[in-house]
């Protein structure tokens, strides 16, 4: 390709312009209500990103995103309320505990086959949501009432009121979404990503070729859970409240739908899928149809549009090649 030396800087400039405009423009032109929906959309988009990355690169479907998302938020609240940590230390503590949990869980379950992995993540997610409701832990977790978090002082130079303001939070959310999207995109293109895809195609062959097939999958699992944990912490900073619903299975299935909707290849699709889901939920949720539509969306997007909205619009061949969909036999 002759023009590629020019095309790369041009793409970079275009991406930079989108980044800056996206960070500033909505805070000027969009109302609080729309911004709030967009914030929720990007939070869900980050969860969708973690689901999609694992699905696309490792062929593993995780149905336990909610336990990491809600769990990190809950731990932050507990660290603030019960352990009397400063907000920054509470964030660190919650983050570390959730990463250790994800590592231990991942060490147990990534060695199983993809179908068992899917079942086990569902079971682990249910385990956490049951644990939170235990009578013995009620003083800590707040049980069905959830926990209120109000912190004094600043986190990253922002006060609690700043996080609660939709416009201020949008900038944080926008940057976080970009960072996690770029990070996972870079990992996907690295050697780790190549090994993951090879293991996805044929685990046995990779093992015979002298590759460790266990550690790369474990790293990938921990990595996507870090993204989910960051989303959970941002959520609690924004909402100032953790409810047990944020640990429920519907959060996990919502993020799966957002990932399928946006298309699981690449980083833009899942994030966009989250935003689409958030606005669609606002449209239909009032009529109590969200869960029904979630179920329909899973079926439709897998059967009819396996590459999602973004994947379906783009005609790049490598997307199809990396894509999880299509009519690929894995037996």
């Amino acid at each position: 390709m002759g023009g590629s030396s020019l095309r790369v800087p041009l793409t970079l400039v275009a991406v930079a312009i989108v980044f800056v405009v996206g960070a500033v423009a909505p805070t000027r032109f969009a109302g609080d209500f729309v911004l709030r929906l967009a914030n929720e959309g990007l939070l869900l988009g980050m969860l969708a990103l973690s689901v999609a990355f694992l699905m696309n690169q490792a062929g593993l479907v995780a149905l336990g995103a909610a336990s990491i998302y809600g769990g990190s938020g809950l731990l932050f609240a507990i660290a603030m309320n019960d352990w009397n940590l400063t907000p920054v230390w509470a964030l660190c503590a919650a983050f570390l505990i959730i990463v250790v949990y994800a590592t231990v869980l991942g060490a147990l379950i990534v060695r199983t086959n993809p179908l068992a992995f899917m079942m086990l993540t569902l079971a682990a997610g249910e385990m956490i949501s049951h644990a939170v409701m235990l009578e013995a832990l009620r003083d800590y977790t707040g049980g069905a009432d959830g926990l209120v978090v109000s912190f004094k002082g600043t986190v990253f130079g922002m006060e609690a009121a700043d996080f609660a303001s939709p416009a201020r939070f949008w900038v944080v959310m926008w940057v976080a979404a970009w960072l996690s999207g770029l990070a996972l995109w870079a990992v996907g293109r690295s050697r780790l990503g190549a090994i993951l895809r090879a293991v996805r195609e044929n685990e046995e062959r990779m093992r015979f070729s002298g590759f460790d097939t266990y550690l790369p999958r474990l790293i990938a699992y921990v990595l996507v859970n870090i993204v989910a944990a960051v989303a959970g912490l941002l959520h609690v900073l924004n909402a100032g409240f953790v409810s047990p619903e944020s640990l429920g299975i519907s959060v996990s299935t919502n993020s799966l739908v957002a990932a399928l909707m946006g298309g699981i290849a690449g980083s833009v699709g899942p994030l966009l899928g989250g935003v689409i889901f958030s606005f669609a939920q606002d449209e239909f949720g009032a009529r109590g149809l969200t869960q029904l539509l979630t179920g329909i969306a899973i079926v439709v997007f897998i059967v009819v549009f396996p590459r999602g909205v973004v994947g379906g619009l783009s005609s790049m061949a490598w997307l199809r090649k990396l894509g999880f969909g299509g009519r690929r036999e894995t037996s």
Binding site: G59, V61, L63, P114, L115, M118, T253, L256, Q291, L292, T294, G295, I296, A297, I298, V299, I302, V303, P306, G325, R327, R328, E329, T330, S331
Partner: peptide, 19 residues
């Protein structure tokens, strides 16, 4: 289709039926 995709479809159908 791959088994994972079929499993996901059954998950979706289950949610629909439950609702």
């Amino acid at each position: 289709r791959s088994h994972i995709e079929v499993a996901l479809v059954t998950l979706g159908l289950g949610i629909i039926l439950g609702q």
